[in-house]
Design a protein around this nucleic acid. Sequence first.
RNA 1: GGCCCCGUCGUCUAGCUCGGCCUAGGACACCGGCCUUUCAAGCCGGAGAUCACGGGUUCAAAUCCCGUCGGGGCCA
Length: 484
Amino acid sequence: MSEVRVRIAPSPTGPLHVGHARTALFNWLFARKSEGKFLLRIEDTDRERSKPEFEQDIVSGLQWLGLYWDEPIVYQSQRLNLYQREAKRLLDMGKAYPCFCSPEELDERRKAMLGRGIAPKYDRRCRHLSQAQRERLIRERPYVLRFAMPLEGEVIFQDIVRGEIRFANRELDDFVLVKSDGFPAYNFACVVDDHDMGITHVLRGEDHISNTPRQLHLYAALGCQPPQFAHLPLLLGSDRTKLSSRHGATSLSEYRKMGILPQAMVNFLALLGWYPKGQKEVMGLDEIIAQFDLSDVRPSGAIFDLEKLLWMNGHYLRQLPTERLAQMLVPYFARQGWMHDPPNRDERDYLMQVTPLVQERMRTLGEAVDLADFFYREPERYDPKAVKWLVKEGVADLLFELSNRLELLTDFGSGQVEATVRRLAAERDVKAAEVIHPTRAAVTGRTEGPSLFHLMAVLGKERCVGRLRKAVRLIQGGALGAAP
RNA sequence: GGCCCCGUCGUCUAGCUCGGCCUAGGACACCGGCCUUUCAAGCCGGAGAUCACGGGUUCAAAUCCCGUCGGGGCCA
């Protein structure tokens, strides 16, 4: 048994789609598991739509996920000679033929067939041209090269995830091998390359099933051994149709930008169509490799459930050492103008105090911006729920007194702050919560968030006292509205 | 329209190959409790799938066979 070689072959006509990322992951896992090679081929034969920035997005996306390829990237645009040579071979063997029908003619005939209720397929008229006719037309008209599909029989193959799949040859038409501009069409380039690259297993999306019989015929015509196929279930949107931009973010880089961790993305993606033997779902790449088995992949489509991704991301976020998390937060906070990137010493120290207080609550790095907002900006307004606490009877007086006592503190640690708050509550004979809630409202503008005493200790005496007094002024000035 | 694929809780899925251990297991989401100054997190508990439907085969079917329906993909 020769070495396993797999590949992914994205076209740089758009950013890396999460579906492709999932396909890449399964290919990579399969390669690692079988100690084979994982290769990357860029299918950039569409000159109009291929863009260097998309190629960059694909490359950096794979790197971000940790899915490194084992040999230099193969570019289709640099192998035109190879396709030409193989096309000529097929032509010489009579397994391909030039077709002179123009797109307009084809379109007209297609419509006519549709009108008569027939499946629109190429009518093969150029297949029956004589050698003399061909030689004449070749000089006069542009042409494409078509595959001379066998008219009878069927193609059968064993799909690793689906079992036997068969197609009747009569359903297949004489598809285009080489376009009129001399560039190879998808199926042709794909087969030539896969063979040339020594690909042993093709793991790709289910949407390629119908390409497989055509490709199988090509392998046969070219006289080479086809690889084994495994068609992975499609990634679906919430309406069970193929995941597309209608469903929200589809490109990997969008998830990266919102602050999804690569380990969470990889773990989540691995669970779409595959499941570990045990019941442990949270696992790192190494563990996934150890457990991965292609024959365990399920054939049915899987909905991309953002909620579960967010949960998993939150899980990984909470496991990060404070230092690492803080580092990752820098670009997000810097964008808000809260610090420099890289931060100076003070900004760094402060960030290290803020980070653990938001870590428990965030599901993405991006969410930290909202969660940490009051650490960096004085609240400009208060949540409606916070206002309710502030406008309660006697709260202004309570908060003013608290501000005075806090001001006298020399040590503004969370323990001192807590003692001060609780003592005031006890003296006034109210429950601690009656002081705590309005204080939180005044200091953060919200009703929920990290432990109040810790958060105040991080903010420091000056800011806390200032915010308390500002709230007192607003309450007394009636700016917050009357008590309900 | 033709061909192909798929069909277990709302979602991801275990179980299906080798029928009985399945009164169908886990995870996310949901609901409740504990903890607690709040929200999260964490822990505990709950609800949620007559295994798409209908027929067979069998002592016994989610699991095997046939059919139907539904959804999706590809080709344009």
